[in-house]
Design a protein around this nucleic acid. Sequence first.
RNA 1: GCGGGGGUGUCCGAGUCAGGUCAAAGGAGACAGGCUUAGGACCUGUUGGCGUAGGCCUGCGUGGGUUCAAAUCCCACCCCCCGCACCA
Length: 973
Amino acid sequence: MGLDWASIELKWQKRWAEAKIFESDPDPKRDKYFVTVAYPYPNSPQHIGHGRTYTLADVHARYMRMKGFNVLFPMAFHYTGTPILAMSKRIREGDKELIETFKSIYGVPEDKLKEFVEPINIARYFHEEIKRGMIRMGYSIDWRREFTTIDPQYSQFIRWQFSKLREGGYITQGSHPVGWCPKCGNPVGQHDTKGDVEPEIERFIVIKFKLSNEEAVLPTATLRPETVFGVTNIWVNPEVEYVKVSVEGEHWIISPQAADKLRYIKEKVEVLEKISGSSLIGKIAENPVNGERILVLPARFVDPDNATGVVMSVPGHAPYDYIALEDLKSREDEIKKFGLNVEEVKSIEPISIITVPEYSDIPAADLISKLGITGQLDPKLEKATRTLYMHEYQFGKMKENTDKYSGLTVAEARERITEDLIDSGLGDVMYELANKPIFCRCGAKVVVKIFKDQWFIDYGKPEWKDLARECIKKMEILPPEMRKEFWNVVDWLHEKACARRSGLGTKLPWDERWIIESLSDSVIYMAYYTIAKIINQYKVPAENLTPRVFDYIFLGKGDLKEVSADSGIDEEILRKMREEFIYFYPLDSRHSGRDLVPNHLTFMIFIHTAIFPKDLWPRQIVVNGSVLMEGQKMSKSLGNIIPLVKGISMFGADALRLTVLGTADLLQDVDFSFSVAKSMRERLEKLYDFVCKVASMKTGGCERIDHMARWMLSRLQRHIAEATEAMDKLMVRRAINTALYLIDRDLQWYLHRIRVDAKSEDIPPNAVPIVRKVLDAQVRMLAPATPHICEELWEILGGEGFVSTTSWPVPDKNLIDDEAEELEAYLINCIEDAQNIIKVLKKVPKKVIYYTASTWKWKVYTKLLTESLKGKLEVSNAIKLAKESIGKLDRQITDFVKKMVDELNRIPVESKERRIKFDWKKEKEFLEENLDFIAKELNAEVEVYGEEDPAIYDPERRAHLARPFRPAIYIEH
RNA sequence: GCGGGGGUGUCCGAGUCAGGUCAAAGGAGACAGGCUUAGGACCUGUUGGCGUAGGCCUGCGUGGGUUCAAAUCCCACCCCCCGCACCA
C-alpha cells in the first residue's frame, strides 16, 4: 500500500508556486521576519546532511509565517572559491577517482561531465541540481531573489563592502606563511593536495651560533628557544652533506634541503659551497645568549630534511639530546674517529635550566629511564619528547641561570626569548610542514612559502572585537550553549587573509590582481537579498550599481535625486530598493551548521558591526549539528553519501524532513538511518489513513462535553502550549515529538476509553468533533515540518486555503481542566495498582474490589494538603492538625497521618495545587461511572465500596487501607 | 594545550535547563504467547534483583558535597567526540 508521495508533493509544490505564497514584499501593515541560511557551494549535489540545515531554516520560516509574520526566506548560490577550480582541473587531467564519484555517486550524465573542464559549468550544473532539490524538499523560498556570487551586480556589492572595510581601517597587508606548490605557483589548501591533506605549518625558531674564526653561523632550529640556556653542544649529522649558503648576506651552514626551503621564505638565498657534515664536527661555536663556547658533535638522529638540519643540544631537557650525548660519551672510538678530545667530550654534562614539579633536575633523564629508552633511534623518544615538551610548557619555571628570564614560566619565557632573539638579529624564523611530505595534486612536493603583501581583514583589532562582543550580547543565540563558543572565537580571532590569486570571485577594488576569498564575500549578502528582487526584475546593469548607490540603499546616505542622476538608475527603482532594505533589514535569524561558528558566522557579526549601524545588526543565530549515516560519518570513501533527491524518492520529502529534524536536538548529530526514515513515512501514512477515516465519518448531533472530552481537550491545550514553547526556541525535535507522538498517545487513550460501550472499532459520532479538533491542531502543528502531507490533510479536513498560510494554534486556557486530568490519572493509577497486584499474585482474578477512603481521612488529608502547601510538614504538627479537624485521635489516625506526611512531602507543588481543588466526593462516583472500563481492562468483575459503606463487602479486611487518591484493593481469585 | 559537546539499563536513545508521581519515555535485540503449512510481517506480554497484595533493594562515568529528597544542583577526577583558520 502506501501513499503516492511524489504526486502529493508535486501537487502542493505547484500550487504554492502558482499562488506565490512564499513571495514576500514589503507590507508596512505586517511585521516582517527575515530568515536566511548559509547559501550552498555548488561543487557537488546536496546530500541528506545539507538537508538538515536548510530544512531547519525552512521550518523556522514556515513557523513564523503561521505565527502571522511577513516572512522572507531567500536563497542564493556561492560560486566563489577554489575547490571548483581544483575539480575542473582534475577533470581536465582525467582524474579517474573524481570522474567515478561524479558518475556513480552524484549521477552526473556523461555529456554534462565533459563540460566540467570549465569550472563555471560545474557550478552551474550543481546550482540547478541543488535548486531542484530545494524545491522538491518543499522549501518556502522566494526564488525571485536568487543570485550567484559571481553575478556582476553582486561583485559590485562586494567591492562596495571592501571599500567600506578599507575606509574603516579594517584591512591590513602583510606577509604570511602558506602551503605552496612550486609548480602551480599557488597556495594549496586541503582540496589541492593528494589525499586531501591540510598542510599544517610549524614555526621553528632559528638560533644562530656563530662559528669561531669563521664568517659563518650554524643556525639551529628549535621549537623551544627558551632552552638555549641549556645548550651543551650542537649536533650535526656526520653522514650528511651540508652547504654553506648566503642568506640575505649572512653565511649559514645548513642542509641542502633546508637551503631549498629557505628560498621560499627568505629574499636572497645563494648556495656558496658544499661542506661535509663530518668536517663540521669538532668546530667551536658561540652561544648567542651567554657567549658559552659550544662544541659541534655528531648525531645520526639529526634529520637533514627537518628545518635547518642543525640542532642545538639541550640534554637536560630534551630526551633525544640526552641519549645522543650519553651514546657518544660511551664510545671512545667514535669520539676519536672524529678527532675529538675524549676528556672534553666526556666532561659535557646536562645543564638544568627549568624546574618542573615531579621531575628531577634533569627531566630528560627521568623519562629515558622511565620509558626504558636505549638508543638514539628508539621510536619511544618521540613520545618522551612530546611528554616533556607538554609538561615543561604547562608547569615549568625558568631557573636563576637563565639571565633575565629567570622566574618566568616556560610559556612566558619562550615568547620573550623569541622576540628578543629576532629583534637582536641573533634569531630568525623558519617554517616547516608538520605533516610532510604533502603532494600537490599536480605531483609536486608542497613547501612553505611566505606569501608577500597578502591582504587581510584584521579581526584582531581590539575595538572591533568590542563591537562584535556588543553584537553577540544583544543577539539571541540558539541553542544557548553556543553563545560561549562565539565569545571565545572573538577572543582568538586575528588577521584573516581575505584575497587570493585564483578561483572564481570578485576582484579587490584597489588591487585587481587579487580575488576576494569566499569567506570574505559571504558575510553581509543577506542585505543583498532585499534588493536582488529588484535588480533581477529591472535587470539593473552592474555598472550602474556604484558605491554611492549602495551607500544610499544600505546606509541612507546621499540624496535620492543626486544618486539617481549620478548612477543612471531610476529614482523609482532606487527608492524601491531602499524601501525593501529598510523593511526587511535587519536579519532576524541566520541558520547554519556548527562548523561555521568559528568562521563564517563570526565574520558575519564582525563585518556587520563594521559597516552597518547598530539597529541593523543581525538579531539571531541558529546553529545545528551534522548528520551521520547509520552511525558513521558521511564520506566519499565510505560511499555512504545519499544525495538529497535520492532520499526524497526513497522516503518522500516529508519523511526525510521529519527524520533530519525529529531525531536529534539542535546541536547533536542526527544519525540518519533507513529504518528510521521508513518508519517516519509509515507514521505519516498512518496519520493520513486516520484523517481520511475521521473526515468521512458523520458527526454526531449533540456535541456532549463529557469527562473524556474535557480530558482530551485539556490535554490538547497543554500539548499546543508545549509545542509552541519548543518552536519558539527552535527545539523542533521536541515540537515534533509533542505534535506527532504525545498528542497521538493521548488521542489513542481517548479512543480506547470512549469505545468501551461501542462494539465496533468506529469512533462514536459524538466524539468525532473532538477528534477533529485534535486533528486540526495536529495538522497545523506538523505543517512546518511536513508541509506536503499537511496540506493534503488540511484539504481533506476541509480547511480553508493553505495550511502553510493558516495560523499556528493557540492554547485555550479555558479548556484546561485540571480536574478531568486528575481524575483520569487517578483512574489509570487504580488500574495499574490492581494490575501490579495481579502480577505478583500470579493468579487469574475473578473479582476486583476498590474501597475509597472514608470521610475523616479526606478531612485530615485536605487539612494536611493545605498545610503542606505552606511549607514542609512535620509529623508532630500534622498529628495536632488532624486532632483539630476531626476532634479525636487514635492509633489508626496517627498511622494514617504519618503515612500522609511522608507522601505529601514528596509530591511536587503543582500536583498539590491541583489536588487541593479536587472535590473528594467525586472519587467514588467516578470509579462507579467507569466500572465497565476498569472491568474490561482488568478482565474481571469490579466493585466499588466506600470505606464506611454499611453494606460493604470486605472479607479480607482491606478497606481500612484506603487512602485519599489511593483506594484500597481486594482481589478475589 | 585552549575552547566546545558528551558519558544513562544488553544495545541505541529520551530525561538534566525549571531536583520529587524516575526502575527511568521510545526503539532495537532477546524470551514467551497469538496468528501462520513454515518463514516473514503483524498483535499481546516479559525483559536490574527480590517479593503469593499495590512493596523493598540496587541503579544513570568515578569519588565527594548540598538537600527531607539528586540521573538532574555544586566540586574534583577519568574517558570519548569535534574545532583551533586562510578551506568551503
